[in-house]
Simulated assay, not measured.
Amino acid sequence: MEFCPTCANLLQYEMTNPARFFCRSCHYISPIERKVKIKRGVQLTNKAATPIIVGKKPVGATTDATCPKCGHGQAEFNQVQTRSADEPMTIYYRCLNEGCGHNWKED
């Protein structure tokens, strides 16, 4: 797939001599080179995961949620849309008790 550098529309293929890509909107034309490079065996690398919870300080908003593990009355929370848009968001909590730090979620 090739996109027009001018208007970002999908370029159409035209089999002429020589073959070319063209844009129906802005009339951009790009000739197709005869020598096509096919890349095979491209090695993908894994990136290191960035932790969401860093250290003991609260990173996000806090609330008066009770920790199910230690019973502490404050927790940090984060909301994420994990299901379809018509479903409620999933809320992830982290206990703010320094000795606990328990993580749990509420669907």
Rank of each mutant, 00 (worst) to 15 (best):
Arg24Lys: 11
Lys37Ser: 09
Ile91Gly: 00
Ile32Thr: 01
Lys37Thr: 13
Ala85Cys: 04
Leu96Thr: 03
Glu76Ala: 12
Cys7Pro: 01
Leu10Lys: 11
Phe3Pro: 04
Gly60Asn: 13
Tyr92Phe: 15
Met1Pro: 11
Pro88Arg: 06
Glu98Val: 04
Pro31Leu: 02
Lys37Tyr: 10
Arg94Glu: 05
Lys39Arg: 14
Ala75Trp: 01
Thr90Arg: 11
Cys7Phe: 06
Asn9Leu: 09
Lys35Ser: 13
Pro31Arg: 01
Thr62Phe: 00
Ala65Arg: 08
Ile91Asp: 02
Cys95Glu: 06
Arg34Pro: 03
Asn46Lys: 12
Pro68Thr: 03
Gly99Met: 02
Glu76Pro: 07
Thr62Asn: 03
His27Val: 07
Ala19Ile: 07
Lys35Asp: 13
Phe22Asp: 05
Pro51Gln: 10
Leu44Tyr: 06
Ser84Lys: 08
Leu11Phe: 01
Pro31Asp: 02
Ala48Asn: 07
Met15Thr: 10
Ala85Met: 14
Gln79Lys: 13
Thr16Ile: 05
Lys47Ser: 11
Glu2Cys: 06
Pro18Lys: 07
Arg83Gln: 03
Thr50Lys: 06
Thr45Arg: 08
Lys56Tyr: 08
Lys57His: 09
Ala19His: 10
Leu44Phe: 07
Arg40Tyr: 09
Ala75Val: 01
Gly55Tyr: 02
Val54Ser: 04
Lys39Ala: 15
Gly101Leu: 08
Ala85Gln: 13
Ala48Asp: 07
Glu87Gln: 11
Leu44Lys: 12
Gln43Thr: 12
Ser30Met: 08
Asn78Ser: 08
Arg34His: 06
Leu96His: 00
Tyr28Gln: 05
Tyr28His: 07
Met89Tyr: 12
His102Arg: 07
Val36Thr: 10
Cys7Val: 03
Phe21Ile: 00
Glu106Asp: 15
Gln81Pro: 08
Arg24His: 06
Val54His: 10
Ser84Gly: 08
Gly41Phe: 08
Cys23Leu: 00
Pro51Ala: 05
Asn9Ile: 13
Val36Asp: 09
Lys105Cys: 10
Thr90Pro: 04
Pro88Ser: 12
Ile38Glu: 07
Glu2Pro: 11
Pro31Glu: 07
Ala75Phe: 01
Trp104Met: 02
Lys37Glu: 11
Phe3Ala: 02
Lys35Asn: 15
Lys105Val: 03
Ser30Pro: 02
Cys67Phe: 02
Glu2Asn: 09
Gln81Asp: 11
Phe21Thr: 00
Gln43Pro: 06
Trp104Ile: 02
Val59Met: 09
Thr6Met: 13
Ala8Val: 14
Lys47Arg: 14
Glu87Tyr: 07
Leu96Arg: 00
Thr50His: 06
Ala49Glu: 15
Lys56Asp: 14
Gln81Thr: 02
Lys35Glu: 15
Ser84Asp: 15
Ile38Phe: 08
Cys70Gly: 03
Ala8Asn: 14
Thr62Cys: 06
Pro18Trp: 08
Thr82Glu: 12
Ser25Lys: 10
Glu14Ile: 04
Cys4Gln: 00
Asn103His: 10
Thr62Gly: 02
Gln81Cys: 01
Lys35Gln: 14
Tyr92Met: 15
Pro31Ser: 03
Glu33Gln: 14
Asp107Arg: 12
Thr45Cys: 07
Gly55Lys: 03
Asn46Ala: 15
Pro51Tyr: 06
Gly41Lys: 01
His27Lys: 15
Glu106His: 05
Ser30Gln: 15
Glu33Tyr: 14
Gln79Gly: 04
Cys26Phe: 02
Lys35Cys: 11
Asn97Tyr: 07
Val80Lys: 02
Lys69Ile: 04
Thr50Met: 05
Lys57Pro: 13
